[in-house]
């Protein structure tokens, strides 16, 4: 194993283990029941930390994220369903708090953007094919003779 392989392997390990290892910094926050804790973590990973905005509340070190983690665990322990917990947070912070936005009229463009990109690309290919100039006519006798001359000299 070269040094480079070693570096790649450790990077892969870090990336694979990262999301698990970095969730919740303080073990005292975790629920005693591992099944409930797993549910709370899954819910928290769908919720955006409103302070850092590109992290879930499970990954964020912000104060507000810690408060929300705590509330998610309280509600899970109190017997709320996953949807009820998410709805509770969405009622206060709006759909923006979901890291996976719902599919509705306002988000059609967002969800449709891969299809849109595909359509634009396809259109480009079609237009390109349509405008491709015809292949040039084959050389006539005189031209072929001249080409032979040129290549021989």
């Amino acid at each position: 194993m070269t040094r480079r392989h070693l570096a790649l392997a450790s990077l892969a390990l870090l990336l694979a283990g990262g999301s698990v290892a970095w969730a919740i910094s303080d073990p005292a926050e975790a629920l005693p029941d591992p099944r409930q804790e797993a549910r709370a973590e899954a819910i928290g990973r769908q919720l955006r930390c409103l302070v850092c905005q590109n992290e879930s509340i499970e990954d964020s070190g912000a104060d507000l994220a810690r408060d929300l983690r705590h509330i998610v665990r309280q509600r899970v322990a109190a017997g709320d369903s996953d949807a009820q917990v998410v709805d509770w947070v969405v009622a206060r912070y709006g759909d923006f708090v979901r890291l996976r936005p719902p599919f509705e009229w306002q988000t059609v463009l967002l969800w449709g953007s891969p299809l849109l990109a595909l359509a634009v690309g396809g259109l480009g290919v079609l237009v390109h094919r349509h405008y491709r100039p015809a292949p040039p006519a084959p050389l006539n006798e005189a031209e072929q003779a001249r080409l032979r001359d040129l290549m021989e000299t």
Partner: peptide, 12 residues
Amino acid sequence: PGRVAIDWGLTG
């Protein structure tokens, strides 16, 4: 505790 602020949807 910042708990009422969450009901207001406070982000900061």
